[in-house]
């Protein structure tokens, strides 16, 4: 039997939006909140599946195949700034943090 789906109210959506650093205005909240609830209801159906003793499969295949050395890619100096919204010297300028 499935577990009871979690309550997805406006406070929950605002909390999750804060975790995601994603602004959600009241108009969007009114639309998206019920939709999220319906989708999470669907996802909650997984609780009825017996997964006793089953190890999670995070990757699609045999994980040992994917433990290759991480080889970096060389970038030209300044390449990282080419799409910068606001560059300052070799840095990205942002609003004051502290």
């Amino acid at each position: 039997m499935s577990a009871t789906p979690p309550v997805v109210d406006a406070a929950t959506v605002r909390h999750v939006a804060h975790l995601a650093r994603l602004g959600v205005d009241d108009t969007t909240l009114a639309v998206i909140g019920p939709q999220l609830g319906a989708i999470i209801d669907m996802m909650t159906g997984l609780s009825a599946v017996d997964t006793t003793g089953i190890a999670p499969a995070v990757l699609a295949g045999d994980e040992t195949r994917f433990r290759a050395p991480d080889i970096g890619v060389e970038w030209a100096p300044g390449a990282h700034l080419e799409n910068a919204p606001d560059a300052h010297g070799t840095a990205f300028r942002v609003p004051r943090v502290v």
Partner: peptide, 21 residues
């Protein structure tokens, strides 16, 4: 939060919220 709210459409926002949840 504002860059992401302005830059992403509704479906992307929905999926980010689902995944974060």
């Amino acid at each position: 939060s504002r860059s992401r709210a302005e830059g992403f459409g509704l479906e992307v926002a929905r999926r980010i919220l689902l995944g974060t949840f």
